[in-house]
Design a protein around this nucleic acid. Structure first.
Lengths: 180, 180
DNA sequence: CTAAAGTTTCAATATTTTCTGAAAGTTTAA
DNA sequence: TTAAACTTTCAGAAAATATTGAAACTTTAG
């Protein structure tokens, strides 16, 4: 690994734990992302100085996140691994996967709690709060689903527009009112 | 704790680790959120069955996230704790804090790596990828900053609009073109 | 079918993170 | 100033998580 690649890989490893996977999985993924050519499990183990078994588990994890794919080279029995898709695709995958793991279970727990009859004052207050949290999470999840289903170019336009989107909303209101 | 509150507190504790703090901190926060009246450190320790020292550390953590505040009751020497602001405020705080911890350090690492002269082909390819990641993270951070600076009502309108926002963007284009 | 090349599994070990509780620190009423 | 009431700190214990490596498993060329 060159110094540039190494510092990226190490940083991504540390960050990995915050982003939902462990250090070595983060490092493996980082290395695959910046490698033009696919790598074998043994190459990963060697470059990162980790055990072959650990690489095998890491690969399984990255596959469960659908972040890497396998490539076979004719006449070679080894499996080669490759980061999947564009940076944009990767970001979407991570985002989606985290929503599944962090938000969805909470939403279903909240739905359950809101179905219970509140027995007393304390419960009534608690349920009010749970309701607010539920509604917020639901709005945000629905929204993020919809954003993800948008064409990436349009989404990019939207993001670049930034808070300017407020003006566009006003603008639409105004024009609609005039024409009515 | 009533059963409803307890299941919320336990769930939030487990989830807490995914959301950036540890189990007991998550539980403490959950309990404060659904409690109408402020609680003392001792009450937290007792309700959650954790040590007084752990509560003290948890409080410090929650304060560093600016998620709770202190209240004094006249004639009482104890400190009372209270979840801060509305659910919306809380979500914003958590979101912002996570951005600071998860994204900002990566952005500065990437900026550093992009300043290096790439020595060879491998580095050149790696830097291309780093560049893409950098640009994406920057766009997203800037956008989220701007969304956060918007008036919450407008932001809510925007979210409820969902992917319909694409149509509004088209609409604006069309009207502007006509009038030019 | 056999054995070589490769991959996965998982019990044991190492590392990291969290939690406890006793001691030290702080504040205030008297 | 003192001591009671309360809070914080932090070294060590406990719990959770990650990692290794050897054995078991799988695949395929011959």
């Amino acid at each position: 690994m060159t110094p540039i690649v190494e510092s990226f890989v190490l940083h991504f490893g540390e960050m990995g734990s915050r982003w939902g996977f462990n250090r070595t999985v983060g490092q493996m993924y980082a290395l695959l992302v910046v490698s033009k050519d696919p790598l074998t499990a043994n190459q990963l183990a060697e470059e990162l100085n980790i055990s072959r078994g650990n690489v095998s588990m890491g690969i399984k994890e990255l596959q469960s996140w659908q972040l890497i794919c396998t490539k076979h080279i004719p006449g070679d029995r080894k499996e080669y691994y490759l980061a999947l898709g564009s940076i944009w695709d990767m970001a979407m995958k991570v985002f989606e996967e985290r929503r599944k793991r962090e938000v969805d279970p909470t939403l279903s727990m909240l739905r359950g709690a809101l179905l219970q009859k509140s027995g007393n004052d304390k419960d009534a207050y608690a349920q009010e709060k749970l309701h607010e949290i539920h509604d917020l999470l639901e709005t945000v999840t629905t929204w993020s689903h919809e954003l993800q289903s948008m064409n990436p170019d349009k989404l990019n336009t939207l993001m670049k527009l930034g808070s300017g989107v407020g003006k566009v909303l006003d603008f639409k209101e105004k024009v609609l009112k005039k024409s009515s």
